[in-house]
Nucleic acid binder design. Structure first.
Lengths: 345, 345
DNA sequence: TTTGTTTGCTAAATCGTTTTAGTAGATTTG
DNA sequence: CAAATCTACTAAAACGATTTAGCAAACAAA
């Protein structure tokens, strides 16, 4: 029941000196502030002896820095985001920052609520996967000089730091890869979301198809229904109606899941002849049957870039002085699901 | 660049009243403290007008409550933990708490470092998946009156709140299920960790085997090597050497992953005749070929129990007055990988 | 009329730091 | 030898809230 936390004041009293002196010593300003070596050592020794740990809350109140970062994503339990969280966590803790996570479920109301919750001096920086309609809130954050980095997508005509991958190039290359492997009727299954990253993925697919003079087959699942687990039904129907398809490209991971499930229920053998590529990798895709070719986002690189940029922003007096739009390249992990034809032939 | 945060003092000055009054009103103590209705409303209106948001840091310093909980797990990017994080997050935010997460990688040094980091008044409560050697630190936390709940495993002879599942019963039942489905040479692949939850899983398996007069086949992969991705080799070797096996029970999820990979590399067809059960479910197991039977921890129930208990602890004056060891039952998700024989026969 | 109670409000302490603006005394400089 | 500089240290304000203790004025009870 005893919560005897040692404070700087206790130390000062015990040693019969002022709190100022203790504070100076503990902050390594002894030399600068002309505290004698003897006293400095005495304070240091005593602080160690009583296991003094500064009260971060008090420090925060005084300095205005909380040493806390917010990592706001769509859903922290999503493979991509949780893996990324793990990488960011390591770097952040190493640099003396803690990380608070939250999931906005891509909903504006949730996003706004959460940002509002953290805005009041609470946190030192924001890493945000923005929901579609929060451009003005992001602008406000920047206006108020909070370090902000957008992740995975950003807003057109809003000056804001961001780390994204080149979605268009990624799907272009992946589609080309399918074509090179003799798949000629490739479907692209996506949502009807008008968010930048989804649009770009679609563009990449379409330009590859166009370039090869093929026919494009696009299924846009209504975003709202995709989240209710209705995707499976849409996909089943689509596949049934398009008998000529020989490959499917899923634009995002939960659609892949729904798709695989649909295939399994409809016709388990179909999957072995069908070409499949998915956006976003998962550990289990490399042990699936067939192993599934995936557009893999470079998690390590994204995490490193994010934190490197964030640490620079945190040092900045005026965050508007740094404005980086970092674009990384995804990697196509080629596996069985996109190479069966060439193997056979 | 303007960070015009409105403080209680600003409001007081603007309205020409004292900060005390403003504080009372804003904390809903107007009635109790005899603040007139008129003034109360005036303050309320003005606070809303200037969009006053209390500075949580200052509040924390004064009240000693940070409204932050720590969720410390082995690895936040692990399926089980990230799903659980998502559930806990929702409840916590709903109750006005934020969640800081961290991964201890099941290492004592990391655990100790992290706990130490958070101990100094920083956080209001701890949910911890403890690494093996931190019993005394947990005891210390409790001694110092911090709310603590252990998750997934606990320490013998340490009075501490915990939420775990009945591992022994779960593996017992699952093993019995295999036996009932005509698998008679069942291997149990686990690590050599002496942590409670792993021990119990092994006991469950062994008692089921014993009860049915079968032969037990146990592979204990050295814990250290299991983390270096060596598991696959151990499993391959084990399978090669034990030709009579007709089923495998993986004691934890990363072993399953290694196992499936091993099977795939060794003999892709083998997996279709082999019985398989895994501890800890994953979304993709229900679309694997074959779909994989899994011992599934009741995520929702665990999350709810955790937070319900935590909220009670947070209200407590002396945390030692509550001591609950909650044990939940896992659910066996029966799928193809454990029922192929009975289907055939 | 005096005493006691209620109403309406506020001054000041406090939480644990950091930081500004000193103050003596010793030493150096012109 | 007076003025300037340096050394070693400290008092007190500040960060933004909460909370204790208390002060008048109004009202009620005796």
């Amino acid at each position: 029941m005893k919560k005897k936390t040692v404070s700087i004041k206790n130390i000062a009293e015990d040693l019969n000196i002022s709190v100022t002196t203790v504070s100076f010593v503990l902050n390594g300003k002894a030399k600068e502030k002309h505290i004698s070596k003897i006293l400095t050592q005495k304070v240091l020794d005593y602080a160690k002896k009583v296991n003094y740990k500064p009260n971060q809350i008090a420090q925060s109140l005084r300095t205005g820095k909380s040493k806390i970062l917010v990592f706001m994503v769509e859903d922290i339990s999503n493979y991509f985001f949780s893996k990324l969280a793990r990488i960011i966590e390591d770097i952040a803790y190493d640099k003396g920052y803690k990380v608070i996570f939250c999931s906005n479920e891509n909903q504006d109301t949730k996003s706004l609520e959460l940002i509002d919750l953290f805005k009041n001096r609470q946190v030192d920086g924001f890493i945000i996967v923005p929901s579609p309609g929060i451009k003005s809130m992001i602008a406000e954050l920047i206006e108020e000089n909070h370090p902000v980095i957008l992740l995975d997508r950003y807003f057109s005509d809003l000056e804001c730091n961001s780390v994204v991958i080149d979605n268009q190039e990624a799907t272009f290359d992946a589609t080309k890869h399918l074509i090179a492997n003799k798949y000629l009727n490739i479907a692209f299954i996506t949502t009807d979301s008008d968010q930048m990253q989804m649009q770009n993925r679609l563009f990449g697919y379409e330009s590859a198809i166009l370039e090869s003079n093929l026919k494009s087959h696009v299924l846009k699942i209504p975003y709202r229904e995709a989240n209710d687990g209705k995707s499976k039904d849409f996909i089943k129907k689509f596949i049934d109606e398009s008998k000529e398809l020989d490959a499917v490209f899923f634009a995002t991971n939960y659609l892949t899941q729904a798709g695989l499930e649909a295939f399994k229920e409809n016709n388990p053998e179909f999957i072995h002849s069908l070409g499949i590529i998915t956006f976003d990798d998962n550990e289990l895709f490399k042990i699936y049957s067939p192993t599934i070719t995936a557009v893999s986002q470079p998690l390590e690189a994204i995490g490193n870039k994010l934190m490197e940029l964030m640490l620079r922003l945190l040092k900045q007096k005026d965050v508007k002085e740094i404005s980086e739009k970092i674009v990384l390249n995804a990697e196509l992990k080629v596996r069985e699901s996109s190479t069966k034809r060439s193997v056979k032939s």
